[in-house]
Simulated assay, not measured.
Amino acid sequence: MTYADDDVNEAVAGELALMDPAVRASRARFEPLLDPEFVEVGSSGRRYTYADMLAWLPDHPGGSPDGPRYEPSSIEGVVLAPGLVHLTYETDSGGRRARRSSLWRRRSEETGWRMYYHQATPVPPGAE
């Protein structure tokens, strides 16, 4: 395994953690995974900032044990530059599919990998 593989694996681990309802329901576990300059364009088309996500996510249905779960598939990653990883994958949540893209960056060893940008695009029913 190369250093680049380790970086991609750490970003994937962070991405999967952010889909875990236990992490999503805990600000203490969720907050360290987001970069303070985080921005998301959700599948709804809405734009979210770091502060928006910290305020919104614990009340999101995906943050409760009985809420919908995001089932990821085909996760791929590439190191774009030192300290910057791009992930792409697809999720299914109760029959709603989305194609997703995330940028993870590491500014220092102390802060570790954090999601810097995320975008979700809905996949219409029947689309490949």
Rank of each mutant, 00 (worst) to 15 (best):
residue 64 S to L: 07
residue 89 Y to T: 00
residue 69 R to E: 13
residue 90 E to V: 11
residue 53 M to N: 14
residue 86 H to K: 15
residue 4 A to K: 13
residue 121 T to W: 00
residue 46 R to Q: 13
residue 120 A to D: 15
residue 84 L to I: 12
residue 9 N to G: 10
residue 25 A to R: 07
residue 61 P to M: 12
residue 8 V to S: 00
residue 59 D to L: 13
residue 22 A to Q: 13
residue 87 L to T: 02
residue 110 E to L: 09
residue 42 G to D: 01
residue 104 W to E: 03
residue 39 V to Y: 08
residue 28 A to V: 06
residue 119 Q to T: 07
residue 106 R to P: 06
residue 46 R to C: 03
residue 89 Y to H: 00
residue 35 D to W: 06
residue 126 G to N: 05
residue 27 R to S: 03
residue 43 S to E: 10
residue 122 P to G: 05
residue 78 V to G: 09
residue 114 R to W: 07
residue 29 R to P: 01
residue 38 F to N: 03
residue 62 G to W: 10
residue 36 P to W: 07
residue 90 E to R: 14
residue 31 E to H: 13
residue 79 V to L: 04
residue 101 S to A: 14
residue 55 A to K: 15
residue 96 R to E: 12
residue 21 P to E: 03
residue 44 S to K: 09
residue 24 R to T: 02
residue 32 P to A: 09
residue 111 T to L: 13
residue 61 P to R: 14
residue 105 R to H: 08
residue 103 L to S: 06
residue 2 T to H: 04
residue 121 T to I: 00
residue 37 E to Q: 03
residue 37 E to H: 02
residue 91 T to R: 07
residue 85 V to N: 05
residue 40 E to T: 01
residue 15 E to Y: 02
residue 43 S to P: 05
residue 128 E to I: 00
residue 59 D to I: 04
residue 75 I to K: 01
residue 120 A to V: 11
residue 57 L to S: 11
residue 49 T to K: 06
residue 118 H to D: 14
residue 34 L to C: 12
